[in-house]
Design a protein around this nucleic acid. Structure first.
Length: 637
DNA sequence: CAGGAGGGGCTTTTT
DNA sequence: GCCCCTCCTG
């Protein structure tokens, strides 16, 4: 352990050794933050003698959690019971144990963004609100904001929104489902309702650490505060310059105000960068220093000066993509590992052109994000079956798959059953069992509904005898879904079948790794998994991702593309100063991912969704970088 | 009453 | 360029 401490600089060592009381670590990009957190956990266990079970570490993604778990294991050896999880996953776990206290059954389903929008649509329908006048996605966004801020429904000023909000929450309760923000909000509710439970978790988590603290929202902050209140051993780590999730309710205020909320806080600044060349760091600093809303600070380094940043101005987006591809090939010929190269962009849409180009040039690549695996329709269909089996109150999933594959049970029939369910206060799935009582359904449809119900019932009844993989296999076979995919002829449909098969394999792996896991556990894990969690960094492929997904990662070579006014900063952020500054931070995050080489590109013409060419202006942020750091000498052959 | 074909809308970032 | 919704057909 002493040996480990000697590998840290004085500030880092301080951050590891101060274990009692509130502590705020302001960790600049590349300042060894992860190392500090990992060592801190090791220090707590080995030197202070804290039991691993008394430590809670919150990370931003599951991927970061797994990485940290691995590192700690390497440091300490053997198994430990440190809780290292995301906020959402921590809360889901707490609720599985104690949700009944606040009226939620413990087999609740977690609704993602798309399930949520379906439910909002349903609510708008129930309340006879025209979805053309009020967009469901917009309403869903407003609902999320309310929950992220722990606002009470009575405080909602807009009458329509308040009605929808209440109706929506009633539906969630009825369906035994929670949306993402509920996970946090309900735990806060649980803690405020039940002192014993709060007490239990406060004593359990005597030492709490929160990473990426700048990206926590109000609800997460309140939750953290509640948990840490008793023992006050709270360590938060963040960087206000890397706050890029305010649109998701993150409050940079949480970091700026930490010292006010915890007056006896020890503040430690990690400002030495170990990652990037001096030029790259200078460029990053030159950009971010233009922000008004930030804690003043300067990163420094003893790293080599490095090359100039290479800037390329392309005629259009195709030329831009070709430039990136050719540079990648050039680097590859010089022996660079393609897995150490990353291409960033502002919006997922931009990946398409790059992909096309990479295919043409035969460059192996991997897109992180865009269409996430678990959000693909065919995957969601299979999961909807499993969700229905796990929680048959989940009418969103039931509606989704009752006619997949086609059973000739259409909208009209579903509407009739829904009305019946509403009138008699019976769950939709129970209406299926009592289908003879529902009027005006023809006998063929009735028969097919009974068949469907029988099939689901038999899967539910038999589930004890099977593991999750066997169950999933039965689902795709007995529902006829796999067969329906096998008959399809187009390339796209073939891909769907492949995806379902891939899902089955992944379930098999999951069962092998966690033989005691329940269906509940599996569905929860899948719901809370993001695409970055799946990403395998050891692949020898160029990595394509959004600037948001790049957070927390680092690469030898980085390309930042689309440096245009309207893209970075995004045009929707241009009229709000706070949002505008967040765009600048986004670029800052992108630049600071690079260790050795940084390329920045701009296309004078980019065809967006509108018809015809779209002539662009260069990003104003680029002018903030001193010109001596940049080389522009490109002739594009 | 189900499902295919064609028109209109919209596209930031995500746990 | 893609997805969703609607209208029309079988």
């Amino acid at each position: 352990m002493d040996d480990i401490l000697s590998r840290l600089n004085p500030e880092q060592r301080k951050a590891v050794k101060i274990v009692r009381g509130p502590i705020l670590i302001l960790a600049g990009a590349g300042s060894g933050k992860t190392r500090v957190i990992t060592y801190r956990v090791a220090y707590l266990i080995h030197k202070v003698g804290v039991s691993p079970g008394n430590i809670l570490a919150i990370t931003f993604t599951n991927k970061a959690a797994e990485e940290m778990q691995t590192r700690i294991q390497k440091l300490l050896g053997g198994n430990n019971e440190v809780w290292i999880r995301t906020f959402h996953s921590t809360c889901a776990r707490i609720l599985r144990g104690g949700a009944e206290r606040i009226g939620i059954k413990n087999n609740f389903t977690i609704y993602d963004e798309y399930d949520q929008i379906s439910l909002v649509k349903e609510c708008l329908g129930d309340l006879e609100i025209d979805t053309k006048a009020v967009s469901p996605a917009h309403v869903a966004g407003a609902i999320n904001k309310i929950k992220e801020n722990l606002q009470s429904s009575t405080a909602i000023e807009n009458d329509l929104l308040r009605h929808v909000y209440n109706h929506y929450n009633n539906k969630l309760l009825e369906y035994n489902a929670l949306d993402f923000d509920d996970l946090i909000m309900k735990v806060v509710e649980l803690f405020k309702t039940d002192d014993d439970i709060l007490d239990y978790y406060q004593d359990r988590f005597k030492y709490i650490m929160v990473d990426e603290y700048q990206d926590t929202n109000r609800a997460q902050y309140v939750l953290t505060k509640l948990l840490a209140e008793k023992h006050r051993n709270l360590c938060v780590v963040g960087d206000d310059d890397q706050s890029i999730y305010s649109w998701r309710g993150a409050e940079i205020r949480n970091i700026l105000d930490f010292e006010r909320d915890f007056p006896d806080t020890t503040v430690i600044k990690l400002q030495q960068n170990y990652r990037s060349t001096k030029r790259i760091l200078d460029a990053a600093s030159a950009v971010v220093k233009n922000n008004e809303y930030r804690k003043p600070k300067t990163l420094w380094c003893e790293n080599k000066v490095g090359e100039q940043i290479q800037f390329f101005e392309a005629d259009d987006a195709y030329t831009e993509a070709a430039f990136v591809a050719r540079k990648v090939i050039e680097l590859g010929l010089k022996g660079a590992n393609l897995g150490e190269i990353a291409v960033f962009y502002r919006i997922n849409y931009q990946s398409r052109l790059l992909e096309e180009c990479f295919i043409t040039y035969r460059i192996p690549y991997e897109v992180v994000g865009s269409l996430r695996f678990y959000e693909r329709a065919e995957i969601k269909n299979v999961l909807a079956y499993l969700r229905l089996i796990n929680n048959n109150l989940d009418a969103v999933s039931l509606r989704r798959i009752i006619n997949i594959p086609s059973r000739k049970i259409g909208h009209e029939t579903i509407e009739k059953m829904s009305s019946f369910s509403k009138e008699h206060g019976i769950a939709l799935y129970d209406v299926l069992h009592d289908i003879d009582k529902v009027k005006n359904i023809n006998s063929g449809t009735r028969r097919r509904i009974k068949e469907f119900t029988r099939m689901i019932d038999s899967l539910i009844d038999g589930r004890e005898g099977f593991d999750i993989y066997e169950l999933a296999l039965r689902v795709v076979k007995e529902s006829g879904y796999l067969a329906s995919l096998s008959q399809e002829k187009t390339e796209r449909e073939y891909v769907r079948r492949k995806n379902v098969e891939e899902l089955l394999i992944s379930i098999k792996d999951y069962v092998r790794e966690r033989p005691s896991a329940t269906l509940d556990n599996y569905l929860e894990e899948v719901s809370l998994r993001s695409d970055i969690d799946e990403w395998n960094e050891s692949n020898a492929r160029v990595n394509l991702m959004t600037l948001h997904n790049a957070k927390g990662l680092e690469f030898d070579v980085v390309f930042i593309t689309g440096l245009e006014d309207g893209l970075i900063p995004h045009y929707k952020s241009q009229h709000d100063e706070r949002q505008y500054e967040e765009e600048r931070r986004l670029l800052y995050v992108g630049i600071t991912r690079a260790r050795e080489k940084l390329f920045m590109t701009y296309a004078r013409q980019r065809d967006m969704f509108r018809a015809g060419p779209n002539y662009t202006e260069i990003s104003p942020f680029l002018n903030e970088i001193p010109s001596d750091l940049i080389s522009t000498g490109y002739d594009f052959e």
